[in-house]
Write a protein that binds this DNA or RNA. Structure first.
Length: 154
DNA sequence: GCCAACGTTGGC
DNA sequence: GCCAACGTTGGC
């Protein structure tokens, strides 16, 4: 089993939206960066655990954990002209962009803020904490994941 | 609101 | 294939 971190802007889609979704499951769509796509498509497998991070909000924080319940499949929003995620270059016969499906695992009682994360020497190597890091799908090491679980009272 | 740190686009 | 210009992300 592998571990990941996904960023989302809560105004767009928050962990509370995931909690309210049917079966607490959603398609994670709209990823439009190749490196992030490669992690979704080539790295994520059913059963992997995913930290959910809220960006562009207050507080900036890891807010909970989800699990991968379906591995990658074509992102239909890329073919939808009315979608903000429409991509004319993505063809049905060779889709550029992919989704995975996620199911909520748990919401942290207290969000684990970016400030708290930065204060943990054991997490200093996290991609999330790297200056200028913009990657919205990131691998997380087992050690980092366990530390974060523990910090969040898991 | 600012701007650093990217990623993408397009002229050449 | 280079790289300047432009657009986006996202912390501050």
């Amino acid at each position: 089993m592998k571990y990941w971190l996904l960023k989302t802007e809560p105004e767009e889609y928050s962990i509370h939206d995931l909690a309210a979704a049917p079966d607490q499951t959603t398609a994670w769509d709209g990823v439009r960066n190749y490196q992030a796509r490669n992690f979704l498509r080539d790295g994520m497998r059913v059963g992997d655990r995913v930290l959910i991070y809220h960006s562009n909000t207050e507080p900036l924080a890891i807010v909970g954990v989800a699990k991968v319940v379906r591995s990658s499949y074509p992102d239909a929003s890329a073919f939808d002209r009315k979608s903000a995620y429409f991509d004319a270059k993505s063809k049905a016969e060779s889709p550029t962009w992919v989704n995975v499906d996620l199911k909520l695992d748990r919401i942290f009682a207290e969000p684990l803020t970016l400030i708290q994360l930065r204060s943990e020497p054991a997490l200093a190597g996290m991609e999330l904490l790297r200056r200028g890091s913009r990657l919205s799908v990131q691998p997380v090491t087992t050690e980092e994941f366990r530390r974060i679980q523990r910090l969040a009272g898991g």
